[in-house]
Every structure is written in structure tokens, then in C-alpha cells.
Write a protein that binds this DNA or RNA. Structure first.
Lengths: 326, 326
DNA sequence: ATGAAAGCGCTAACAA
DNA sequence: TTGTTAGCGCTTTCAT
């Protein structure tokens, strides 16, 4: 079923059908409008959006590239993106990279072939800066910045200050030996959180003990592993975790060793993913406006796509939410 | 940059370029092949997939409609779908319905307009059966069956038997008063789990006490609420939760009342979402092969799309995994 | 081994 | 108020 067939059934030209379908019907008589609408309804006609896209040069879809939707942080981000996109009439194609640059490259190519109107992406931890040289598709980066030649949009939240705040919170609660478990150093986000941690420690006159720092990945497993490694040989009374997943893993490991949170060890996480308030004890953490970041990313992207004036960088605030793990 | 321009630069026709790009180059001399490839590389040419799709009548994309990606169950399912889709050369468009039929309808329409090659969907809890009458796009349903006129694919796992097993497990562990917290009765999955629960209770000579049954939604909040309501006025020593999210909520509520799991109350969940092994205590639950269901869904869908012989129904097994909550 | 040309289903400028 | 038509960028058949 094509527009042409509908046109024939309605005894009009395809141009007319097109006009009524797209609401460009100022110059269409109500009679024909109704007739066309009726036929469309009767036939259950669904227009071919691909043909339309080819013609109008817009697919009304945006691609989203992220490490892994199963990660609560990214699923919330994706949801924020999808909801706002839907509200603005866009669909989203989702791509998981597992922090693999090869896959990132591949998806970038595919999305462009699919002619998405724009791309929202959380870059791989170690994305080369030069990926985006001859890059035309509008794009906004979320969560992870990368240096590049072009002018890509960026939604970020400051990590250093909140990390400082988190560590400071631990110190204020009386912690003297504070560990840090996070992702590897190629991950800028992780590095920035480390900087905040360091700053707070130094400011409080505490020394940085490399033995209390474990850097692996932003995952529960990594939290377990880190806590295990550190607690085996060292005594700590506080842990600042690079994200909530790590905190959840650390929590588990701590309890398994018969230690109590927060009595023996206090923990603060980062992100405030949806599950964090439900773990035991509810996690004190730095709340990032994850869902809103997703929203803002599409706001900015659509502004760029539709060629409006845009600030290419938007910084959101993260702040401490105190629960029972500290 | 179009195929035509590449053709000019290479001094060949666009037909030739098309052939080398698509590997239909048996009759292309190696010299021209190399020349064309070189130009493509140099120019960073990216073919217009929309134009291609219009011509070949295939978009190599499949749509996935589910309640909410933020729900760990569905994010794992989505990941299973995405991974297999990627392996088979398909991209995926993701749509969240929040169990809202209106949204489901809308997305069904949009996906068809976007000419997806197929759709994978977890139907709304109360999806009307007649939605899919004049429906052409290949489709496979996951997790929730619905009666319909057409022949849609279905990936399911039996719920009754595992629910029976879960309840039986509680009984075997000595529970005499077992509550059931789950989603509402329009949700077939929930109903089937109730049937299993009932069967086990009856078989063990225990009575069904309506006061110990709380039906609301498959969410953590619902688990909190249910446990709260039930524990306020009744004494129970076991709870079978309709899914793990509910179990997590119930766990929290139980602990807040100063009760211990599993000593005072034993809990078993359903699904075995990724977080379940990390909660405290690690959750005994019915493991569904969620990721594999996603995989299988695209396997079946692609078989349908490519017109291969297919069994339109595939039933996977779920089974009990015992951890420390019982 | 290569090219010409039709056509996929739609929109929009222009004509009537 | 409605219709004619060119063309979006590609693939593919058929000629050459």
C-alpha cells in the first residue's frame, strides 16, 4: 500500500494525500480532506517513513552510544534520552560498546549510514581524540568529555568538587583512614573523582596511602575485589567509592568479613542510581541528575539539529545525599 | 557526498561503485576495485542507508518495545536483543511503554513507519488482543503472551512450575505461613506465578489466606508496600515474591522492622536479575534466562524475516537458584 | 568488465 | 483547490 494507491482510491493525486497527511491542508477542501482521511483509515495505510526521510533528509531518529544499558547508570540515562526524544518526536537507536573502541567506531559508522539526525554518546574510556575529524552529524557527549577538533556538545557534571565533598563528609564523620575504589586512570571521570578525594585528604592533613587506592572498573565485581584487596592487609574506617556499583560490591565484601557499615567502616558512593536507596544500609552518595542529563542531552542535540543558537556545554550539579552508610 | 560523486572521482559509473561496496565484485577488475575503494577511503564517504533501504526494502533494524529499560529485567533483555541483533547485522530502536497501551499503539505505528524489519515486544499488561489484526511486520512476543488472531512468534518461560517450585522450597524449609507479593491480576505472568504458589500451598495442606496476598506491581516500592501491609497485622515466616524487585523491597521492609532474613522470614524471588546475588542476604530466586530470551527473540525474529522455517513458540526453562535468603 | 536507466515511495515547487 | 513532475541516493537488470 502506497500513497499512490491511496490517492487513486480517493480520486486525488498523491500530492493531495501527502498534504493532508502532513497537515499542509490549508488549501485542501474539507470534503477531500475527509475523504482521504477515511480511505487511509479504512485501508490501515501506514506511510513509508524511509521514502519520506530520503526526500526530506531527516530521519527523526537519534542514536545513543553508551557502554552498557544493563548498567543502572546508563539505563537511567537512556531512559532520560528516550523520554525527551519521544516528546520531541524522535526515536532512538541504542548501541552498547562495552567500552570497546572498535565497537564504538563501528556504531558511529552505522548510525551515520542510517542517517540519524544526531548522536548522543558516552565515549569509551579511552576514545582517541581524532575519531571525530571529518564528522558531520550533530553530536553531544554525555558524562565523559574528550578533546577533539570539532565543536561537539557536552553535558557534564563536575566530578572533582562532589568527590571532594564526599571525602570531606567521611572525614567529618571521623574517618582517619579512607580508601578509594574506582575505575582505571584512562577514565577521566574516575581521575577527577580521585582528584577530589586527594584534595580532601590533603586538606585534612591526612596522607595519601597508595595501598588504600584500588583502581579497576566501575562495576560491582570491582567493588568486591577492591574491598577484599584493601581489607586483607589494611585497616580502614571509610571508603569513597568511585560509583554506586562499586559501593554495592564493597558493602557486600565488608559484611562478609563481619564488619559493620557504618559502625566499622563508612561508605559513600557516587551517582545515586535507583537501587542505592534500597541497599542495606541505604547508601550515602553523590546524586547525579542522571535522568535529567539524558533529557538535556536531547534538548541540546535537537537545538543543534534544528540549527538554533546553543551553548555547547551544559554543566549540571551533583550533590551529596546522606543516607545510612555513613 | 553521494555514490555518484564517488563514481565520477573514480571515473566509473555509480553502478560499479555500488557493486564494489556491496561485494558484488566478481565482474569488477581488481584495478578499478582498488581505485574505487581508495577514493571512498580518501573522501570518507558514508553511503546513504536510507536510500539503500528504500531500494532494497529492508532497513536492517528491528524495534523493541518494552515497559521500561530502567527495570533490570528489561535492560538485561534489551541487552540480549542488542547483542544478538548486532551479531546478525541489525540495529535496534528501543521504545518504553510504561505499560501504557496508548504508548504501545503509538510505537507500533512509528516502528512500522520507520519500516523496521521486525518487532520484539513485551506486551503491555493488558494489551487488547485485537491490536494486531491488520499487522504485517514480523513480530515476536517475549515474556508476556497475548491471544491474537495472527501468528506471532513467542518466547516464553513457564511460570507456573517454577513458582510452584519456589513455594515448595519455602515449605520444605519449614515455612508454615507463606505470603505472596506480586503484580496485579491483569498481568498474566503474575497470575501464573500465583497459580504455582497456590498449588504448592494446597498440596502441602496449607490454606490460602487472602490476607497474605498482596498484588500491586512488579516494583521495589510494591515490595516495600506489600511487606508493610502484610507484616503489620500478620505473622508470616516466608514470602514468595513475584519478582526480584519486589523481593528487594520486601527485604528492606523486613529488616526495618527488626526481623531477620532468613531466620525469621525466608524469601524467594523470581527472575534472578543481575543485582540479586549482591543484595543482603543474597537472594534465593527462580533464575530466568533473561539475556538468552533476548538472544532467542532475535534468532526467531530474523528467521521469520528471512522467511525460514520456524517454530513460532520457544519455551525456555527457569529454575531455582538457592542463595542465602532461605 | 562496465554503464544506462528505471524505479523504490515520498515531498514540494510549480503549473493549472 | 488540485495535479504534474522532478528528484532524494541507491540497486539492479539488461545492454554493451
Amino acid at each position: 500500500m502506497t500513497i499512490k494507491q491511496i490517492a487513486e482510491l480517493a480520486n486525488v493525486s498523491s500530492a493531495t494525500v501527502s498534504k493532508v497527511m502532513n497537515g499542509k491542508d490549508k488549501n485542501i477542501s474539507e470534503a477531500t480532506r475527509q475523504r482521504v482521511l477515511k480511505i487511509i483509515e479504512e485501508e490501515g495505510y501506514i506511510p513509508n517513513g524511509i521514502a519520506k526521510s530520503l526526500k526530506v533528509k531527516s530521519t527523526k531518529t537519534i542514536g545513543i552510544i553508551l557502554p552498557d544499558v544493563m548498567n543502572l547508570f546508563f539505563s537511567e540515562l537512556a531512559r532520560g534520552v528516550e523520554d525527551m526524544a519521544e516528546a520531541k518526536g524522535y526515536s532512538i537507536i541504542i548501541c552498547n560498546t562495552d567500552n570497546n573502541e572498535k565497537k564504538e567506531q563501528k556504531y558511529l559508522q552505522i548510525l551515520q549510514e542510517k542517517m540519524v539526525d544526531g548522536i548522543i554518546m558516552t565515549a569509551t574510556e579511552s576514545s582517541a581524540n581524532n575519531i571525530f575529524c571529518k564528522f558531520k552529524t550533530p553530536m553531544v557527549l554525555v558524562d565523559r568529555d574528550i578533546d577533539f577538533g570539532n565543536k561537539l556538545g557536552l553535558i557534564e557534571v563536575d566530578n572533582v568538587e562532589p568527590a571532594y565533598e564526599a571525602t570531606k563528609h567521611l572525614i567529618d564523620k571521623g574517618c582517619k583512614r579512607i580508601a578509594f575504589i574506582s575505575s582505571v586512570k584512562v577514565n577521566k571521570t574516575s581521575v577527577n573523582r580521585y582528584i577530589g578525594y586527594e584534595k580532601a585528604l590533603l586538606e585534612a592533613g591526612q596522607t595519601i596511602d597508595e595501598n588504600l587506592v584500588f583502581l579497576d572498573s566501575f562495576s560491582i565485581e570491582s567493588g568486591c575485589l577492591g574491598a577484599q584487596k584493601i581489607l586483607k592487609d589494611h585497616k580502614v574506617d571509610g571508603i569513597f567509592c568511585g560509583n554506586d556499583l562499586i559501593a554495592i560490591g564493597a558493602l557486600k565484601e565488608i559484611k562478609e568479613r563481619g564488619l559493620r557499615v557504618p559502625e566499622d567502616i563508612k561508605i559513600v558512593g557516587f551517582d545515586d542510581i535507583s537501587i542505592s536507596r534500597y541497599v542495606d544500609p541505604p547508601l550515602t552518595t553523590i546524586k547525579q541528575p542522571i535522568y535529567e542529563m539524558g533529557n538535556e542531552a536531547v534538548n541540546m542535540l535537537v537545538d543543534i539539529i534544528e540549527a538554533r543558537e546553543v551553548d555547547m556545554k551544559r554543566t549540571l550539579k551533583a550533590c551529596l545525599v546522606e543516607r545510612q552508610s555513613t
